[in-house]
């Protein structure tokens, strides 16, 4: 049986060594492997969910999956490719939880008698502070991001916030480059529509 040969850079060799040691139960090696990539994983997750707490949940789930699956990892792809594929999958499946935790929006709340009154008084509130403005903007951006499908959101945040190349996003998500572009254009269109008043 033939196996796909992956070109091996010095970085890949370091990964290989750590993977083999981790497979033998060396937790120190597993920790080093985690530390080589975990900031990237946390960043992707945080940009996707726009919440540090949810990002930590995703981070933990990703590395637990890696820990469980490492004994079966066949080295047919680079470790980083495999890891980021897991990361994007966990992000995409995390959406359900994020949605479940998301409370009613201001507009939904204003259907409620008391919530409406509070929302009304809020609109009258003076908000000149720079931080307050930034928070408002963040809320608008978050609401705009919520109009996207999970995959559109994934691709969009990886491009806009993490500045990955389309080719890299395709590799990390397992999508074709054309599909990534399609998601990106559709997402940009939706976001522009949502943020129209601010543009």
């Amino acid at each position: 049986m033939s196996q796909v040969q992956v070109p091996q850079s010095s970085e890949t060799m370091v990964d290989l060594d750590l993977i083999q040691r981790a497979k033998r139960g060396d937790m120190g090696a597993f920790e080093q492997l985690v530390f080589r990539y975990d900031k990237q994983v946390l960043t992707i997750a945080a940009r996707y969910v726009q919440s540090s707490e949810d990002a930590k949940d995703i981070y933990q789930e990703v590395f637990l999956r890696v820990f469980r699956s490492l004994p079966k990892f066949q080295l047919r792809s680079q470790f980083s490719t495999w890891l980021f594929r897991i990361t994007t999958n966990v992000c995409l499946s995390h959406r359900t939880k994020r949605k479940r935790h998301t409370h009613a929006s201001i507009h939904q709340d204003s259907d409620d008698e008391h919530g409406g009154a509070i929302a009304e008084s809020l609109r009258d509130a003076v908000e000149t502070d720079h931080h307050a403005e930034k928070t408002d903007l963040a809320i608008h951006v978050e609401k705009a991001l919520e109009t996207l499908s999970p995959k559109q959101r994934m691709v969009f945040t990886m491009k806009y916030y993490d500045d990955y190349k389309i080719r890299e996003i395709a590799e990390m998500t397992g999508l074709a480059e054309g599909t990534v572009k399609r998601y990106l254009f559709a997402a940009t269109k939706k976001i522009r529509r949502s943020l129209h008043d601010l543009l």
Binding site: F35, D38, K39, L42, A46, R47, Q50, Y161, I191
Partner: peptide
């Protein structure tokens, strides 16, 4: 302008404290 707006509206910054916390919980 959209790009500038999105960058300004970014909510979460990845700090060393956040990473340390994630590592501890892991």
């Amino acid at each position: 302008r959209l790009d500038t707006l999105l960058q300004k509206g970014r909510r979460v910054e990845i700090t060393d404290e956040l990473l340390d916390e994630a590592r501890r919980e892991l």
